[in-house]
Design a binder for these strands. Sequence first.
DNA 1: TCAAATGTTTGATC
DNA 2: GGATCAAACATTTG
Length: 263
Amino acid sequence: MPELPEVETIVRSLAPRLTGRRILSAIFSSKLVTRGGLKKVAARLAGKTILSLKRHGKHIVFQLDSGVLTIHLGMTGKLLLDGAATPYTRGIFRLDRSTLLYDDVRQFGRIDFSEQLPERVERLGPDALVIEFDQFYALLKARKARIKSLLLNQSVLSGMGNIYTDEALFRARIHPTTNSGRLGRVRAQNLHRAMVEVLTIAIASKGSSISDYVDADGASGSFQLQHLVYGRADQPCSKCGTPIRRIVVAQRGTHYCPRCQRA
DNA sequence: TCAAATGTTTGATC
DNA sequence: GGATCAAACATTTG
């Protein structure tokens, strides 16, 4: 479900409401999601106070008065403040003034407690929303992966997922299989600009709700209404009318305009 | 019944 | 070491 704009939307809405709150207790029910041990993680969280809540790529990092709670939503994870439990509720955080639920149908998400910021988060590449052009260009030049694969690689650049990668490449008129090292400065600038623009507008639209995504209050985003290629296979390109094509790149469904984005 | 789904990891292979 | 690819994880939906 969640790429950078969706996670950012959740964090922005939860941060002011959770900062300073105390975790009275936690209970988990999925060994897949809470791999550190259901009871062990719960015991370590009980009594801790939330000092801050931040987004690192697609991870949500809670700095506690001692230790760190890290949540990754996987494909179908949701954090719901004072929502109703469902058969897919995998975690319940009872706080001093509210209840935070973690719902996840497919259980690809992760909930971890650690003393320090986890390795997984430390190793993330620079954030796609704030990376400067020079650093972005250096990343492209240092590799020769297909541009779509590179943008999806969280250790190179963090935050981009399947939707926003397709949307950014279309807006920059770059074919998804283009070798990143062969992109010239101008085309790289177009991509950098398109990426930041798409992410920024998507955040302003509170994310894309395709099938699962809702924010912490259960509300849908609206950026899906502005998708130009993602999920639009066979529909006419908004720019030239050529049918949008769907191929598989980096093992993900990939949508592009064969005329606007030449190989 | 088959394919696809907002993500990541792991192992094999070149 | 890099990069690609397939498979796996678990479940729903069209």
